[in-house]
Design a protein around this nucleic acid. Sequence first.
DNA 1: TTGAAAGCGCTACCAA
DNA 2: TTGGTAGCGCTTTCAA
Lengths: 344, 344
Amino acid sequence: MAVTSQQIAELAGVSRGTVDRALHNRGRVSPEVAERIRRIAEELGYRPNAIGQALVRAKQNFRLGAILQSAETPTMQDVAAGARQAAAELRGSGMEVELREVQGRDSLQVLRQIDELVAWGAGGLAIASNNTADLVRRIDQLHEQGVPVVTFNTDAPDSRRLCFVGMDNYRAGQTAAGLIRQMLPGGGLVLPIAGHVNNGAHYSRLQGFLDTLNGVDDLRLLPFQPCFDRDDYAHEITQHILRENPSLACVYITSNGQRGVCRAIEDERRKGRVRVVAYDLNAPNRKLLQSGDLSFVLDQEAREQGARPLHILYEYLLSGKVPERELLYTDILIRTKYNSGDAG
Amino acid sequence: MAVTSQQIAELAGVSRGTVDRALHNRGRVSPEVAERIRRIAEELGYRPNAIGQALVRAKQNFRLGAILQSAETPTMQDVAAGARQAAAELRGSGMEVELREVQGRDSLQVLRQIDELVAWGAGGLAIASNNTADLVRRIDQLHEQGVPVVTFNTDAPDSRRLCFVGMDNYRAGQTAAGLIRQMLPGGGLVLPIAGHVNNGAHYSRLQGFLDTLNGVDDLRLLPFQPCFDRDDYAHEITQHILRENPSLACVYITSNGQRGVCRAIEDERRKGRVRVVAYDLNAPNRKLLQSGDLSFVLDQEAREQGARPLHILYEYLLSGKVPERELLYTDILIRTKYNSGDAG
DNA sequence: TTGAAAGCGCTACCAA
DNA sequence: TTGGTAGCGCTTTCAA
């Protein structure tokens, strides 16, 4: 058995309570005794048993809430699955966890859910946020009230959230650019498509992409087109461009709409000649990879984005443990038809 | 607070002991009482508190051992780092964990370490194994003795190990093939290099690669060359081939030796024209990606390979939880210069 | 400044 | 078939 505080107490000739106060600098111990206790603990390599600590701390019985936006999308459903799994685990440790889903991006709805969860007694919140002024203000308020907030999937960088868990979209755009350079060493014509012009994530994915391809000689970039996450728009855009530019070599799409792109390419009988790089490994994209319609998918560990914020809040509330960094970027995963299986 | 067994006991008008026996089918409860208890638990959505369970189970105080082979390689050092981290965490839960490192691949050394760890009192072992007859036999013996074994990084598929945590090397070979097809849509000449002819992992990486490229029209495959994990051999092989085949488009190397390959390409002033795909994202390979010497690196989550087996053994010994699958393949990660940073 | 004791939720043992 | 009780390792009162 590992060494316990009881053993240290016996060796030091004091009680466990004194050992506890000494080792955690809670005061009310004479310096000499404290020093002796610390020395003994050091010698024996004493590490407090995490389970014992957790058990006594669980008395405080914190409640955690999580709020997802755009819950109707496949990616956010993956995020939700991660959150549900974490919730189940934490409930096994005595936490109470509430999950709330909001359709679309809707700050007002999010604010309402925040109010409800706070009223319910949430001691910490995980929020798929926006950076809008009202949400930033509310998160700052929560911070003041001692309710820590972890943002995930989409950040509120101007707020005083504890940290953010999600993708480095700029970096992902660079990664996409790197893939396209590898695929088109001899150059070629590339069409970038984004979802919403003012969607921060889509914009960063585009910016990183453009910055990285800028100045690459033989690569020619068409002006980017917004498709508003819609397959029909994406289809139209792609078809139009294909007819005007028969030499089109690649489409880079930072949002939903990839099915429209692929369909247009098939309609124009250019499948296999025009490569497509898209985002997020969800069920439809797995299929498009298998069929060869997509060359690459950039994935963002959606499940972990849902799970990790809850664990971070748990650690923070129970042990005061602060995350190592403010921006906890999830891995940028490059998926092809061969490494996109279900196993993990 | 979540519902506790105490609350159920009160509602059912029995003691906690009875509740415990009823809900865990330990017998010694009258059917009617058991039924009533189960119904109440169901209604309240009772989930036993994992921390409470862990605390009482930790009394049994299991010892775990882990044995690494080829500990001198960068990849196994990453695996070791994962094992060390898991060991630290588990020690925090009262386990005792011993790590042993073996230089090179040496079944005899591994057998010796197994003996030592068993003598020390190990209740479960994680082993970077071989599939040699002596090791397989020893693992089967351990199984008989009730000492579960989890293999990691390299498997002993013929043995009765609990499960394996590591890379699906065949699949990784296929993934490499897919990348090369994307890079060389017009075809080209490809040189495959493997480490040892009889290294199972290297062989599978080669086989998956060859099977996938077989029958691809414009792609021409040179006969594979063994480099015995050595940079000097790899250098010589590559240089020789480059001089004989100025049109060489790509080198695929399944083992160490990638530095030799890259140096040869630079020596022959073909950098940027000849792509290189290699394995394992360790420090040297990160550099080679940044400098553009390597196009892609296939990575295998080395740290998780070290950490997960220990957690699996912990769960198995404490709760009898059997892993979901026998083959727990780690993710096949495609790394380029843009997604190979340190952050995770 | 220190110690004794209670209690977190659970399981195990011994008596009844 | 049941209940009572002890105890896992820790923290936190409350007394002394």
